[in-house]
Amino acid sequence: MSTFFPRMNRLELTRAIMGVIDDDVLLVAGIGNAGFDLFTAGDRPGNFYMLGSMGMAIPIALGLALAQPERTVLVMEGEGSVLMNMGGLATVGREAPPNLTIVIWDNAQWQLTGGQPLATESTCDLAAVASACGISETTTPADAPAFTSTVRRAIDSPGPHVILAKIDASPAAGRHHDDPVFLKHRFMQAVGIVPD
């Protein structure tokens, strides 16, 4: 484990996000703990949860941000999923939607499957990857207060932004709904879209 950053807590940071965003910010959560802690921190119609499709949260948020340029979109995604679809960061860099903020939860392991260590434990810096993909607004906050102010700044300024949060491996307490069509309809209603 890296000792350069004190490990923060994902649920605490998710609650911090909920505390600084406006009601109309659209939130997308990747598979697993990102979604579970979003549910616990504050379930709301404007949250979109994935149930599978590992790696697709950032592309979903990108498509949403391009379709809804007046809305702020924030996606929370685990480092394992980012590693699985690292090309997605290149596409975000190229498309460069100013209304998109990406939060990467990095505890350097596949936490849900037993803590197998990942490349971010040692050799891979996803903030550097994002930066090399042309996402210039890339930050690795050192502690929870810095994380909170970074999220607030990201939402208030043109992006895309990537915020890499080094977190601990505390298990998620809750579980979100698991009916995909319900989750989709509820979210689209929050966006103001009638499915066609």
């Binding site: 997308v28 979109f48 499709s53 790696g55 697709m56 949260a57 950032i58 592309p59 979903i60 948020a61 990108l62 498509g63 949403l64 941000a65 391009l66 379709a67 809804q68 809305r71 679809n85 090309g87 997605g88 290149a90 596409t91 989709k184 979210f187 689209m188 966006v191 103001g192 879209i193 499915p195």
Partner: peptide, 19 residues
């Protein structure tokens, strides 16, 4: 895209946003 799978995610997000 960098890979076709990304496109499924992007089009899903676009659909959620009304496109």
């Amino acid at each position: 895209l960098t890979r076709e799978e990304e496109g499924v995610g992007i089009l899903t997000g676009a659909y959620l946003g009304g496109r």
